[in-house]
C-alpha cells in the first residue's frame, strides 16, 4: 500500500524552482530517504507533505489524505521534525513533551511505550530547559515530541545535521526500531553515507529527481569501471589521471582519488594505470578496482543528466 504519493509536484519561490515535477511513491512501513545537497528541494517537499505550504501544481497524499483538501485530518496522523530545532527553548524537556501531547489531545502515558527507549536517555535532564540541551539531546527530544501522538507517518528533515557521529548512529538505530512498530518514515539527509541505512532512496538535485531505487539498486546502475587510486602527491595525481587514456572522470574521494574509465579494457586496466603513474614519477602508488558508492552514482547522474540547468550549476 502506498503511504505517501506525490504526483507531478512543483513549487517555486519567485524565480527559484525549488521542486520541479516530482512524482514519488513511498510504501507503508518503509524507511524512505530523500538524499540531496542543500537546495535540492528536500525541505520544500516536507513542507508540502505536512500541509505547511501549498504546491503550485501537482498533488500529494499522505495516508490517503490529500495534503491540500484534507489538511486537518492529515495533521492528526503525521509526526514532523523540521530541520531547525523547533521546540520551545524556555520550556523544560518534560514540559515540551507534555505540551505536544496536549496539542494532539493525548496523554504521555498513552503512547509512552513508543518513545520509552529514547525518553529514558532524556529523563535525567527532564527539568532542564530545552534550549540548554546538547545537539544530540535536542534531536532526541524533538523525536519524542513528534511521536507522542503515535503518528502513522513520520517526517524527519535532516535529523543528522549538526549532530556528532555517535548521536547520529543512535538516531538511525532508533528509526529501525520505529519502523518495526509499523510507522512509515520519510527522512532526508545531505549525507550520502546515510543512504545505505534506508530501504529505498530518492536522489534529488536542484529540485529534480535523479533516481529512485534501493541503495543497492542505485549502485548497481553504475556501469563503468571504477578505480580507487592514491600516491604521495594527491593534487598532481588527479591531474595526471585525467590525462590517462580512456579516463572519463577523476575526483578526490577521501584518501583516494576515484577514476572512472570509459569502457572496460580487460583486467589489464589496473596494471596499465599503475605503469602510467610510475612513468609519471609518482611514489607509493596504490590502484584497486572498487564498487561505486551512492556518492559516485550521484555525481554520475548529475554529470550525465540531459538537464541543462543541472549542468551549468556545476561548471
Amino acid at each position: 500500500m502506498l503511504e505517501i504519493q506525490t504526483h507531478h509536484l512543483s513549487k517555486s519561490y519567485g524565480p527559484v524552482r525549488a521542486v520541479e515535477d516530482i512524482s514519488l511513491e513511498v510504501e507503508a512501513g518503509e524507511v524512505f530517504g530523500l538524499i540531496g545537497p542543500d537546495g535540492a528541494g528536500k525541505t520544500t517537499l516536507f513542507r508540502i507533505l505536512t500541509s505547511l505550504i501549498l504546491p503550485d501544481t501537482g498533488t500529494a497524499t499522505v495516508a490517503g489524505l490529500d495534503v491540500v483538501r484534507e489538511y486537518k485530518q492529515l495533521r492528526q496522523i503525521i509526526g514532523y521534525m523540521p530541520g531547525r530545532f523547533s521546540l520551545y527553548q524556555d520550556l523544560t524537556v518534560e514540559e515540551n513533551l507534555g505540551f505536544f501531547a496536549n496539542v494532539f489531545g493525548v496523554r504521555i502515558r498513552d503512547n509512552y511505550e513508543l518513545i520509552r527507549d529514547i525518553y529514558v536517555q532524556l529523563e535525567p535532564f527532564k527539568d532542564r530547559r530545552a534550549g540548554a540541551l546538547s545537539g544530540g539531546m535536542k534531536q532526541k527530544l524533538a523525536l519524542c515530541c513528534a511521536l507522542i501522538h503515535r503518528p502513522r507517518v513520520l517526517l524527519l528533515d535532516e535529523p543528522g545535521t549538526g549532530v556528532d557521529p555517535v548521536s547520529r548512529k543512535e538516531f538511525w538505530d532508533m528509526l529501525r526500531r520505529l519502523r518495526a512498530s509499523g510507522i512509515t518514515i520519510l527522512v532526508s539527509t545531505p549525507n550520502m553515507d546515510e543512504a545505505e541505512l534506508c530501504d529505498r532512496i530518492a536522489l534529488l538535485q536542484q529540485g529534480q529527481l535523479l533516481a529512485v531505487n534501493t541503495p543497492a539498486g542505485i549502485t548497481a546502475g553504475f556501469r563503468r569501471p571504477l578505480f580507487a587510486v592514491r600516491s604521495d602527491e594527491m593534487y598532481r595525481l588527479i591531474q595526471d589521471l585525467r590525462s590517462f587514456e580512456g579516463a572519463a572522470d577523476c575526483h578526490a574521494f577521501g584518501e583516494y582519488a576515484h577514476l572512472t574509465l570509459n569502457t572496460a579494457n580487460e583486467p589489464a586496466d589496473e596494471k596499465l594505470i599503475l605503469q602510467y603513474l610510475v612513468s609519471q614519477n609518482h611514489r607509493n602508488i596504490e590502484v584497486k578496482p572498487v564498487a561505486a558508492t551512492v556518492e559516485d552514482c550521484f555525481i554520475d547522474l548529475m554529470t550525465t543528466t540531459q538537464n541543462p540547468k543541472l549542468k551549468t550549476q556545476n561548471l
Binding site: 545537497p37 594527491m234 593534487y235 588527479i238 575526483h251 548529475m302 554529470t303
Partner: peptide, 21 residues
C-alpha cells in the same frame, strides 16, 4: 563542505590539495 553537492565537494577538495601542494 557540509551541505554542498558531492561534485562541488570533490572540486573543492581539489582546490585544497592545490593550495597544500
Amino acid at each position: 563542505t557540509s551541505g554542498v553537492d558531492p561534485l562541488a565537494r570533490r572540486q573543492f577538495w581539489e582546490l585544497i590539495y592545490e593550495a597544500a601542494a
